[in-house]
């Protein structure tokens, strides 16, 4: 038997919702998954990281949910942006440290992995899943833009892993 367990195979990640479904049985499977994920979240071993993600996100959201939260007319962070960012953080490998988080005036959420001013990765996501990133590693600079859907682009993941 071959095992190819990916880095992001946290139990809560594996129990994330799958493809859509509308039958009673699809709802039943989703609720069983949710119940299992909830039980794992309650534990210290499996739930600590997910709770830390929620806590960091909520801390930013609670301060940026209203228009003009920066005193200069910044757009509020929407539920869609919150959900997209949470999805991104949940598929991040468990071995990667969690980023510092902040909101941008255009209503997107920013995540930053920082080692020094010359060694830094910054990613922002909006409610449509549009992901912009910039990375600095000494004299090398990278940046790009893409749409995030369920999986993190390998190049972006490599950058984060270097910090």
């Amino acid at each position: 038997m071959n095992y190819t367990v990916p880095m992001n195979s946290s139990l809560a990640y594996q129990l994330r919702p799958g493809l859509a479904g509308f039958s009673r049985e699809a709802v039943f499977v989703a609720s069983e998954k949710q119940s299992l994920a909830g039980r794992l979240m309650e534990t210290v071993t499996f739930g600590e990281r997910d709770r830390a993600i929620l806590s960091r996100l909520f801390s930013v959201i609670s301060q940026t949910a209203n228009e003009g939260w920066d005193g200069y007319g910044a757009l509020p962070v929407s539920v869609k942006t919150y959900i997209k960012t949470m999805e991104f953080l949940c598929v991040l490998p468990g071995t990667v440290k969690l980023p510092e988080m902040s909101a941008d005036p255009d209503g997107s959420l920013s995540m930053e992995w920082y080692r020094s001013p010359e060694w830094i990765v910054s990613i922002s996501i909006d409610g449509n899943g549009k992901l912009d990133y910039a990375a600095i590693f000494g004299d090398r600079k990278y940046h790009g833009s893409m749409y995030f859907a369920d999986e993190i682009d390998k190049e972006v993941l490599n950058h984060i892993g270097r910090v």
Binding site: A20, G21, S23, E25, K130, Y147, A149, D150
Partner: peptide, 13 residues
């Protein structure tokens, strides 16, 4: 089979 689903995700309209 009680349900069959096709789902296609795209970049946003």
């Amino acid at each position: 089979i009680i349900e069959a689903v096709l789902e296609i995700k795209t970049t946003p309209i």
